[in-house]
Design a binder for these strands. Sequence first.
DNA 1: TGTACATCAGTGAACGCGCGTTCACTGATGTAC
DNA 2: TGTACATCAGTGAACGCGCGTTCACTGATGTAC
Lengths: 187, 187
Amino acid sequence: MRKSREEAAETRRRIVKTAAAEFRRHGIKGSGLAELMGAAGLTHGGFYRHFDSKEQLVAEATAAALQSFFGQVESWSAHDVSLETIFRNYLSCEHRNHLESGCPFAGLGSELARVDPATRQIATDGLLKLVDLLARKYDGLKPGAARSKALLAVSAMIGTLTLSRIVTDPELSDTLLRVGRKELLKE
Amino acid sequence: MRKSREEAAETRRRIVKTAAAEFRRHGIKGSGLAELMGAAGLTHGGFYRHFDSKEQLVAEATAAALQSFFGQVESWSAHDVSLETIFRNYLSCEHRNHLESGCPFAGLGSELARVDPATRQIATDGLLKLVDLLARKYDGLKPGAARSKALLAVSAMIGTLTLSRIVTDPELSDTLLRVGRKELLKE
DNA sequence: TGTACATCAGTGAACGCGCGTTCACTGATGTAC
DNA sequence: TGTACATCAGTGAACGCGCGTTCACTGATGTAC
């Protein structure tokens, strides 16, 4: 039954990637390890060959989710330096409807405030990276002012997306996204 | 052992109030009914004399948390019609540090996106009320424009407070709140 | 290069625990006469 | 108004279940000679 080192490393990566999606879809507390390992095509018993605890997986999955999310943000802004593109993609129905691959701050926000410091540190680093990424798009401003605007924009994006997922009225949900895109560009 | 109707109603109110605080402090999934009933000074067995399910309590506790939160917002803005007062109080270290009595959208944000529709409807109504409350403070604007600004402000407030609770660096946390207050007034 | 042995990735059963929920019971409250 | 009985708020034990975690086992992989 033993697998090669490469296979084992591949399995580990698959678990982390699956967890990054499952946690965002069902929440951290809402995702059991057995269910999660099943989604990765394994039985739950093997979990502890790869991780010390669920807490450790939460940390690694958060890091993986952030990394994959940044990949998307960078792909949005690769051929188009405008903030508008970022807002349009972040505050889209597409993003709202796909929790599992979306922004971890919006998907896990209130839960992240309650996880262990190691994971919160990973989230903190991710937040700073996201703010920097946006601040660079606010050109023609002093660095401090650009950073301030970027901080507010990031907060508003995360808040708006979170609310758009809570709201029961689909029209209101769309309005939240649309108004967010429009108002953030006005600033 | 039987209690009078008034006492029973009082007990029920106490459970809901306790739940409104416990859910905000530990999250919905993070609050067990036994722990919660204990915090209300009761044993867990009596829970089902008052509620059909935890889900029902979640709905009522969310409504209670929103109501108590609106009471605070209105007390902030009672003798001072300015938006600045609302931003200063909402985006305060005080508010950040007191999950249990604070804004339910910030405290439960990502969890609210996963609860049953009845509770999400309650949250939706609360959000609309909060947006209206702020929109009235944006005077000198057309109603539509005021509402748009209020929507963005509410999203930014909730996003900022959530992030300020995730971040591990206390200085960054304070900066998030300070920048939020400042930038929201600029608009 | 081939052989013998140690390692360990993954399985599936089992652990104790806390979860939401149910229930028999108690005894004060509410109701009917 | 007083008495007899039904109601039911709250208790504490128990339910089945899924949780995170552990473990004996399997057998292919990696290692030592």
